[in-house]
């Protein structure tokens, strides 16, 4: 009985954390541009060629 109540509380808290994370990410604009981040991550930090071969 009390185990169920504890589990209930935990499950609601975990779900709540995800809800807050979702709302936060929408607010930050993480879904505004879905095209550039996947491209951006592939770039080197510094250009590796100064002259074209």
């Amino acid at each position: 009985m009390s185990a169920i109540i504890i589990l209930l509380v935990i499950s609601l808290i975990v779900a709540g954390v995800f809800l807050v994370a979702f709302l936060y990410s929408v607010k930050q604009g993480q879904f505004d541009d879905e095209q550039s981040p996947p491209i951006r991550i592939l770039f080197d930090d510094t250009p590796n060629s100064t002259k074209h071969q």
């Binding site: 080197d44 250009p47 590796n48 060629s49 100064t50 002259k51 074209h52």
Partner: peptide, 9 residues
């Protein structure tokens, strides 16, 4: 080329 940005190509 001058700016060292030929990675573009």
């Amino acid at each position: 080329n001058q700016g060292g940005l030929c990675d573009y190509y």
